[in-house]
Amino acid sequence: MKAQRIVLPVVVAIVLIGLWHGLVKAFEIPVYLVPSPGKVLETLIKDWSLLGGSLYNTLKITFFAFFCAVVLGVAIAFLFVQSKFIEAAFFPYAVLLQVTPIVAIAPLIIIWVKNPTASLVICATLVALFPIISNTTLGLRSVNPGLQQLFKMNRATRWQTLTRLRIPSALPYFFGGLRISSGLALIGAVVAEFVAGTGGTGVGLAYQILQSGYQLNIPRMFAALLLITLAGVLLFALMVALSKWALSWHESELSNDH
């Protein structure tokens, strides 16, 4: 069962890459339209000094933004559960933030914030923030009512109830939020780099894609794209491992189904 979950996707990947290679060769598709997989890999290695640096920069933005989103999101969620009043007043604005496309507000943020790195981090944070807020809020509220009464009957303090009941109850939801949010942080970082374009610091992977587009360097474009995808997958796997480790007691982590 466990082996299947690794072997099957790998087989699919091999078949698809083989198909890609075969089609490119058979129809003699020019390299400036679709490069062959071998060519992409070759470019990746040849241009690594360039692409590796860009990957580092994009990941840096992603991690900063993710970190900010977690800290801010959790803080806001705690605020929301402290009082229905605060939640009623501010939750609609959290939704507003979520539904406004980041491409639409990124130019403003990039103009307002002098430091290019900071402006990109802010954009990506805005994208990644909402799932943390909503999941953590839901989690902090989803306490077993019986346990709540048990705590009450034993005269638990507010602090004891928070640390021993509310926070552990919220963890599965929180980690669910982390998984979604980590991917969004990467997307936010790439989108923000796109908007900032060549006018920004100009060293992220999105910048490499834009540049390669202008220069019709399609293999490098593919290589950059591949790096973004790999980074996303890696981030997701990291979050899965983290939640497995932290929630070893939880039903959802018992079997292989998710």
């Binding site: 048990l150 009957m153 021993r164 552990p168 007691w249 039903e251």
Partner: peptide, 12 residues
């Protein structure tokens, strides 16, 4: 008080 369900903390 003993509840209708076991009402245990699953993380503990």
């Amino acid at each position: 008080f003993v509840f209708q369900e076991a009402t245990l903390m699953p993380w503990s």
